[in-house]
Design a protein around this nucleic acid. Structure first.
Length: 494
RNA sequence: GGUCCCUUCGACUAACAGGUAAGGUCACCGCAUUUUCAAUGCGGCAAUGCCGGGUUCGAAUCCCGCAGGGAUCACCA
């Protein structure tokens, strides 16, 4: 049933459109998780707005009721918040055009479709829904018989209750040129464009149509989205022209790939943002790394805070070709972020991971964290690095053999035999005193420090690779436990 | 298949109003340092898809061809 067109209503809507130099929107579908490509789009969209002191809007695209996922919208809020991507308008913030949830705007779309029909840029199609994709192709290519129905005839059939869809009337002649901020001018023959459906049989708008209306009504100046929409962009242009609206700037971003051929995807088991966090990556590192997947600030700096990115971000620095996600480089970024944290901040985030392996509260988590900070790449690798504090692992005497320090079982035994009484006699148990005992011994015996340190560390930790050296490990273990472990080593060495 | 887009080291990329020994970072390899492993410092490896054509004194950069890859062609979003 066609709705009455009231010019005043449209004028009113136009008057309510917020104006701003730069207004961008991130428009995710609530799927329940934020994949890396999405996160990057959100970041770039936010950056474009913030760089220009503009407005950033969060809009939830929930037109598809069938795909609704419980709690999915909360995942979006939570992720955006954690990442520092604050929005000025959104479902939870309100705003001049109120509903930022698409379903709540439903009544609007039909009116705009009617407007387009009245101007001849769209038409009603009463044909049966195509059985196959090949069949639908003919309609789409402008060969739909309903395209040539007179307005009166179409009105009559609609009034009589016959179901229909609204299709966009693409001119058969000419070409459409549209401009993308990243890809430049792209021109296509109109004859290759299809008469896409704008309003579905059930009265709901298609995604493509809803988008155009929403973006316009929200005063969006830069439409940032994935490059999969590049080929439908010319049709968008025609829609804007049909309405007589100003065309926004388009920023189409190439996808983030898992390898040469495939996009990153949940299906292939690629990590989402929340997966990465669960794997021990820091939010700041993820954001920083993801920003560089397809954007170059030009200079040689790679580590950027969100504030710095905001300052340096330029659309012209976004690259056209897809970027492959490299977890190794993310690891490096993460390690770099960890190293530059304030020690107390690192201790705070590391403590839960330390306590997974070190239950004994006598061992100070902050002290262990201090050893860990310089050699941790991702948080989840912490437990296995520090488990030896709690329980001395089973180890082989072979560990005492070490080429670089010229250590072997025999020399180790000699060192430990000398060190045990020296440790026992120590008045104070701290880094300095422990170190002194060992360097003194090395000096007396005229050997390298390493030759003394090596067996002590192995005996204390029971493993070759440890965070921190012999001194720190002995200090944290405490004198009693250290001596116990050194004696165990002596037994092993016979 | 039609249409559109893309193409610099293994990866992310810089250099693009034509003139570079094609730069940086990760990874990898080596050396130094160290109390193991790291971290750090220094050094190395390694690219313009095409021994295709053209323009030019000069091409990664501009044009054409070829090849490869991607996207799209839904009453999904």
């Amino acid at each position: 049933m066609p709705e009455k067109l009231e010019q005043a209503w449209f004028d009113e809507m136009e008057a309510r459109i917020p104006k701003g130099k730069v207004r961008t929107r991130f428009a995710p579908s609530p799927t329940g998780y934020m994949h890396v490509g999405n996160l990057r789009t959100a970041l770039y969209t936010w950056l474009i707005a913030r760089h220009a002191d503009g407005t950033f809007i969060l809009r939830i695209e929930d037109t598809d009721q069938g795909r609704l996922v419980e709690g999915a919208v909360d995942v979006i809020y939570k992720t955006m918040k954690e990442c520092g991507l604050d929005h000025d308008e959104g479902p939870d913030v309100g705003g001049p055009v109120a509903p930022y949830i698409q379903t709540e705007r439903r009544p609007l779309y039909g009116k705009y479709a009617e407007l387009l029909i009245s101007r001849g840029h769209a038409y009603r199609c009463f044909c049966e829904k195509a059985e196959s994709e090949e069949d639908s192709g003919d309609f789409n290519r402008g060969e739909d018989p309903c395209r040539s129905l007179t307005q009166e005839e179409a009105d009559r059939r609609a009034d009589s209750g016959e179901p229909f869809v609204v299709r966009q009337r693409i001119p058969h002649e000419g070409e459409t040129v549209f401009h993308d901020e990243i890809f430049g001018d792209i021109r296509v023959e109109n004859s290759t464009l299809d008469d896409q459906v704008l309003m579905k049989r059930d009265g709901l708008p298609t995604y493509n149509f809803a988008n155009v209306i929403d973006d316009h009504l929200m005063g969006i100046t830069h439409v940032v989205r994935g490059s999969e929409y590049l080929s439908s962009a010319p049709k968008y242009n025609l829609l804007y022209e049909g309405f007589g609206w100003e065309i926004p700037k388009y920023v189409h971003c190439s996808p983030v790939m898992r390898d040469q051929h495939n996009k990153m995807s949940k299906r292939h088991g690629d990590p989402s943002y929340e997966d990465l966090i669960a794997q021990g990556y820091l939010t700041d590192a993820v954001i920083n790394y993801v920003a560089l997947l397809g954007w170059s600030p030009g200079g040689e700096q790679e580590i950027f805070s969100l504030d710095e990115m905001k300052e340096f971000f330029e659309i012209s620095g976004i690259s056209k070709s897809p970027a492959i996600f490299d977890i190794e480089k993310l690891r490096y970024f993460n390690a770099s972020y960890i190293r530059s944290m304030a020690p107390e901040d690192f201790a705070r985030v590391a403590e839960p991971y330390i306590r997974r392996a070190v239950k004994n509260e006598a061992y100070d988590a902050a002290a262990i964290a201090a050893l860990l900070q310089q050699r941790t790449e991702i948080l989840t690798e912490i437990p296995e690095k520090v488990d030896f504090f709690d329980v001395l692992p089973e180890y082989d005497v072979e560990l005492f053999t070490h080429k670089k320090s010229k250590s072997d079982a025999e020399s180790s035994r000699a060192v430990l035999q000398a060190i045990v009484p020296a440790f026992e006699a120590l008045p104070e148990w701290n880094d300095e005193s422990i170190l002194n005992v060992m360097t003194k011994l090395a000096e007396d015996w005229e050997v390298k420090n390493a030759k003394v340190m090596w067996p002590v560390r192995i005996a204390a930790a029971g493993k070759a690779v440890t965070p921190g050296g012999a001194v720190e490990i002995c200090r944290i273990l405490g004198r009693e436990e250290t001596l116990r472990r050194l004696r165990i080593a002596l037994e092993k060495l016979g």
